[in-house]
Design a protein around this nucleic acid. Structure first.
Lengths: 357, 357
DNA sequence: CTGAAAGCGCTTACAG
DNA sequence: CTGAAAGCGCTTACAG
């Protein structure tokens, strides 16, 4: 309490506080109660260093006591920028999306920012216009781009043009480090390859994803390279392009399992397709894992529900969302490097050594 | 064009328009261009009937031409209410959440409203305070309450206290019709009961959900009542309380399948638990569906991934989200009745007549 | 049916 | 380190 503050009857102040607490206080209430200008309260809110420690503490105490929270719309209007982070995705994997939302929200908690979701159809040719309208109208503070839209350079060009910050999540770095979360899918595929090789598999089938997906190229490329390094070449007929869907997994497995020399193991580049491999194997009456080892990618809820439970590569999706949001919250000037994200193989019951029958 | 408008050189106006188009026009730009006051533009935006048809059309044409979109933060500040709809949930089923978000967003499309998500932990005792902070700080226009938080009357009391609109989604109506989407889970369970009875099953096991869940009581109650109506009484040992989790499905099925007189069919009140039944059955070497018929509830993605594919009750989740959002957008005065939501059984390969072995 | 003034709750730009 | 004035882009309340 400085002596210079104008003294008011204690009863008046108490009444003021009561009023402020009951019905959403404003910056003016705090200013009056603290005996400072609203600009000073504003400085405290925005963590400006240009406030005396004593003043700051008094104002902060009052803010806490009254339970004052600045109105994001008023702040947003003055800043010309909202306190909203957008999440833009066309990924059909629900668990992936929910985990990513959860991770992002963990970062935003307590920051005054909220998450607004924007699923879209990247195959429609006006989806970029849709995203543009979304980010411009809402004056988003930033957007998180989830694969596969994160790989679309036309989308990113638009965001740069309208001047909206973004954090891109993709299998490898495609942009400045401060705007990227690289998920290093390749490492996970390498681990899968080494695991199957170490179990003794030599005739291995691979069901890839659509080659226009970066993740499919990285996972597939990593797997093939890692096997090659250990002296195993995958003949072309053992590599089948799938569509990241259950049905394409069934179809791919049926082709692989009809080969004269049947593979003893199949790596599917996502769990959906791996589930399709189970179906094809069951239809043929193969016993798992004795007659066929299977590895998936995603470690989706499916993995533990299938029987036998599926060995799969896990991506730390929650953390990816968390880091992406944190990147958007950090000040523009402090270029925050993307964190190191590393997938790892979760071993369950779907693999064994070949010829154990 | 009225004669009273002040005439300006065409070149000036063209320049004005160009400026307005390039960098986010404001209500003032439109007013100047249209030769009216900004209040009139405001009336057009807000669909006030107090505007001459001619004036309205001129202003609307200009708005379209310039691509003007009102700033939601400025509108929100003046209205003391944001253009944000919240979605509050503690449901662990990712597909459920993503579908509901999708349905809600379909309603919001083009309305200027956006969806902000708020997962929470209804077991933590301060989650209501968290939701309160969320809705009050953001001045949400309304919130969609998803089961099971939708069943929490303490949460609803808080929302009424702070005066935030909500739409509750629950198995049966718990509130005024204009605030409820009743999903009639009971009907789906009845259909499952009738289906199993019609196949000839007489010794049937039931794995329920936690009894504190309304959905579990409705589904279980409907199933038991429908069977009773057809002359089948479920002995107590054939009814097991599960926890809506995969593991509890495994455990429940193990108990049921260890009964001296094994059930020929099991109804699990969600697909997670049904997947657990598969696992227990596989472990015992039972062939499906010959030795055991299984029905689930949710029609989750799991249903088609399991082998044999699972017959399950489908709830139109997308539509539930769509109607909930539409309910929140419709004017407060026009009490919009909740729509009739009806679940239905999706028959796949997991059931057969008993004793077909 | 239309508009000028004041205000929503904040911040920026400028002074001191 | 602090504050008074003006402004962000809308709407409400009041006149006419």
């Amino acid at each position: 309490m400085t002596a210079r503050r104008i003294e008011r009857p204690a009863a008046d102040i108490a009444q003021d506080k009561a009023n402020a607490k009951s019905g959403g206080a404003t910056i003016n209430d705090i200013a009056r109660l603290a005996g400072v200008s609203k600009k000073t309260v504003s400085r405290v809110i925005n963590r400006s260093p240009l406030v005396q420690v004593q003043t700051r503490e008094r104002v902060e105490a009052l803010i806490r006591e009254v339970g004052y929270v600045p109105d994001p719309m008023a702040r947003g209007l003055a800043f010309r920028k909202s306190f909203l982070i957008g999440m833009v995705y066309d990924n059909p994997n629900a668990q992936y999306i929910v985990n990513m939302q959860g991770g992002a929200l963990e970062s935003l908690r307590g920051s005054g920012f909220e998450l607004v979701v924007h699923p879209c159809d990247s195959k429609s040719d006006d989806y970029i216009a849709g995203v543009r309208h979304f980010v411009v109208q809402q004056r988003l503070h930033g957007v998180i781009l989830v694969p596969r839209v994160s790989e679309d350079s036309a989308l990113v060009d638009m965001l740069n043009e309208v001047g909206v910050r973004y954090a891109r999540i993709a299998a490898v770095s495609l942009d400045q480090p401060r705007r990227m979360i690289a998920t290093n899918d390749r490492l996970g595929a390498i681990e899968a390859a080494n695991y199957l090789e170490s179990l003794g598999h030599r005739r291995i089938g691979l069901i890839t994803g659509p080659q226009r997906y970066l993740s499919a190229r990285e996972r597939g490329g990593g797997f093939i390279a890692a096997l090659a390094k250990r002296g195993i070449e995958l003949a072309p007929e053992y590599v089948i392009e799938g569509g990241y869907t259950f049905e394409s997994g069934v179809a791919g497995a049926e082709r692989l399992l009809a080969l004269p020399e049947r593979p003893t193991a199949i790596f599917a580049l996502n769990d959906e397709m791996a589930a399709g491999v189970y179906k094809a194997a069951h239809r043929l009456g193969l016993s798992l894992p004795e007659q066929l080892s299977i590895v998936g990618f995603d470690d989706s809820p499916l993995a533990t529900r299938l029987w036998p439970s599926l060995t799969s590569v896990r991506l730390p999706i929650w953390d990816m969302g968390l880091h992406a949001a944190a990147m958007l919250l950090s000040p523009e000037e402090s270029p925050r490097e993307g964190p190191l994200i590393a997938p790892h193989l979760v071993v369950r019951e779907s693999c064994s050594s070949p010829g154990r029958v």
